[in-house]
């Protein structure tokens, strides 16, 4: 409903990524989990990027993480792109939202917040924990 939400661009969804994006509508963030080698990975995909096993599934995350790196984009409406390292291990590309960008720092604790795309899914972004 809000203007902010309307601006979030919906992801391109395909057979590989459908389950991941459907879960985001329920406020769930997943990563890939390999039952062969035990690694968590991102983005999710049917074959494990570490051992190539097909014994993979989605694994729900706590939504907690720390900032690995970030950049505040200048302009009329500044926004922050970031890599966040999840508690489960993988580092994922995202945005940092709803906080003072000037006070951000690498290593800072963050937690997931979802932004509705209006197309049946939501983008996982992060704010200061």
């Amino acid at each position: 409903m809000s203007e902010t939400k309307a601006k979030v661009r919906a992801p391109k969804v395909n057979h590989e990524t459908k389950a991941f994006w459907e879960a985001t509508a329920k406020g769930k963030l997943n990563v890939g989990k390999c039952d062969e080698c035990g690694e968590h990975y991102y983005y999710p995909r049917p074959l494990c990027p570490f051992c190539f096993s097909d014994k993979t599934r989605l694994a729900e995350c706590t939504g907690n993480g720390v900032i690995y790196s970030y950049s505040v984009n200048s302009g009329k409406e500044p926004y922050t792109i970031a890599y966040v390292t999840l508690a489960e291990g993988p580092t994922i590309l995202t945005n940092i939202v709803e906080c003072d960008f000037a006070k951000l720092a690498i290593g800072q604790k963050v937690k997931v917040v979802f932004y509705d795309t209006g197309e049946g899914n939501a983008m996982p972004m992060f704010t200061v924990a």
């Binding site: 395909n14 990524t17 983005y43 950049s71 984009n73 792109i81 945005n95 795309t117």
Partner: peptide, 22 residues
């Protein structure tokens, strides 16, 4: 695959290098 996991976060050429510098 990558399209859905990145484009919505508005990566630009500059900010994707800026994070390396940071």
């Amino acid at each position: 695959s990558a399209a859905g996991f990145e484009a919505s976060f508005r990566p630009t050429i500059v900010n994707m290098y800026a994070m390396c510098a940071q």
